[in-house]
Structure formats: structure tokens, C-alpha cells
């Protein structure tokens, strides 16, 4: 199982932010930190297949597969293996968490017969009670996005600022969940709170104007 960036160059809103980034990641928990506007979210968006790099390739080798899937040559196949939680907070008009997740489950290809059970399972996994989304707190919205990303049991999990808005108890729960998931998945996490997760990460990369660098092994 491997995610490979090869010479990825990308811009966002007209500004160039990534230049020739090459990276290869196997299963585990990988942190990405760095100043705002230097390409953290852009890199994650490229990996999530929603922002097309100007040049370069993003490829995923899923578990038990022999061939890599390119994010842009074969977008449907690539997204089967993908779960993504964006940085922006989920803001939905009147709907409940359960209904929204059931809808996304359908979009992600979960079999109709398995849907109710799967939705209940991911909600339990992130400790999210059902309720009206407009009334959710920041932490609950973060967990809803995480639950959505887990619906299709993806090999590649991409989380942008999942720590934001979480109180210390919620942070502990997130930590343990990520460690559990990272056992046999590639988990990319961008965060402004590296100290919250560095203790359990397998690797830590910083993205600055100079490029992507691996930080020495976390303590």
C-alpha cells in the first residue's frame, strides 16, 4: 500500500504553492504542519483528487493490488479507496447526521443493504450521537466529517485540521482512533497542533515556502 507524489506542482487561487513535490508514503499516520498558505491544504487536496496539479502525478497502490491507480487518469477507481475530511467546517441546512451519512454512503458505493449498519458503525467509531447538524458544535462537525470519510473503509484517509475545535477529551479519542486506523491504512493529517499528535505519528513533514521536509523522528 503506497501513496506517491511525483514532481507535483500546484497552485491555489492563482498562487503557486507547491513546486516539484515528491513523496512516497506507506501505511501509517503522517503529520503535515506548516504556515498557513504554504501548501498544506493544497497537497492534501491533490491527494484527495479535488485539486488537479499543474504538473506531476499522484498515484495510489491500494492493498492487495498490483497496479497503481493514478488520481487523474482513473478518478473513479482512485476515489473508491479514498476518504477525505476538509478543513472547512461542515455547514449543512436542515438535516440530521444520520440522514446525511446515509446519503454519502450511497454516493460512496456502500451497498444498500449494508448502509444503515455502516452508518451506525462509523458514528459509533467517532462517538457521534445523531442530531440536527445546524445545532452541532465545532467538535461534532469535525467528527461528522471524519465519520463521512470512514464510510467506505478507505485505504487512504486524508484529514485536514481534524484537531481544530476539539477539547482535550475529544483529542484523546481522536488520537487513539487515528493510531488504530493507521495500522493498515495511509492516514494523512494536516494540523496546527502537531504536539497533540506527534506522540503517535509515524512521520512528520513540514511544508514551507522552501518545500516539503521531513522532521526528525517525533519524540
Amino acid at each position: 500500500m503506497r501513496l506517491t507524489f511525483k514532481d507535483v506542482t500546484a497552485s491555489y487561487n492563482g498562487r503557486p504553492v507547491l513546486a516539484g513535490v515528491s513523496l512516497s508514503l506507506g501505511p501509517g499516520l503522517w503529520l503535515f504542519t506548516g504556515p498557513n498558505g504554504c501548501g498544506k491544504s493544497t497537497l492534501l487536496r491533490c491527494a484527495a483528487g479535488i485539486l488537479r496539479p499543474r504538473s506531476g502525478r499522484v498515484r495510489l497502490l491500494p492493498r492487495d493490488a498490483r497496479e497503481e491507480i493514478d488520481a487523474w487518469d482513473d478518478p473513479t477507481a482512485y476515489r473508491w479507496h479514498l476518504g477525505y475530511a476538509p478543513q472547512e467546517l461542515l455547514d449543512l441546512p436542515e438535516t440530521t447526521a444520520g440522514r446525511y451519512l446515509a446519503y454519502l454512503a450511497a454516493l460512496k458505493g456502500v451497498r444498500p443493504a449494508c448502509r444503515p449498519e455502516r452508518v451506525a458503525a462509523v458514528m459509533a467509531q467517532v462517538s457521534l450521537p445523531d442530531g440536527e447538524v445546524p445545532a452541532f458544535s465545532t467538535g461534532q462537525r469535525r467528527r461528522l466529517a471524519l465519520a463521512a470519510a470512514l464510510l467506505n473503509d478507505p485505504d487512504l484517509l486524508i484529514l485536514d485540521e481534524p484537531t481544530q475545535g476539539l477539547d482535550p477529551d475529544e483529542l484523546v479519542r481522536l488520537r487513539l482512533l487515528l493510531v488504530e486506523l493507521a495500522a493498515d491504512r495511509i492516514v494523512l493529517v494536516a494540523t496546527h497542533l502537531p504536539e497533540a499528535l506527534s506522540g503517535c505519528a509515524d512521520g512528520h513533514y513540514t511544508i514551507t515556502a522552501e518545500g516539503v521536509n521531513r522532521v526528525g523522528d517525533p519524540a
Binding site: 483528487g49 479535488i50 478518478p75 473513479t76 473508491w80 477525505y84 475530511a85 472547512e88 461542515l90 460512496k108
Partner: peptide, 11 residues
Amino acid sequence: GAALEIELSCP
């Protein structure tokens, strides 16, 4: 916003 990005990351 976030809901759109999530749907775009679906197959």
C-alpha cells in the same frame, strides 16, 4: 464549502 469538497472526493 466542506460539503461540496466531500462530494467531489466521492467516486
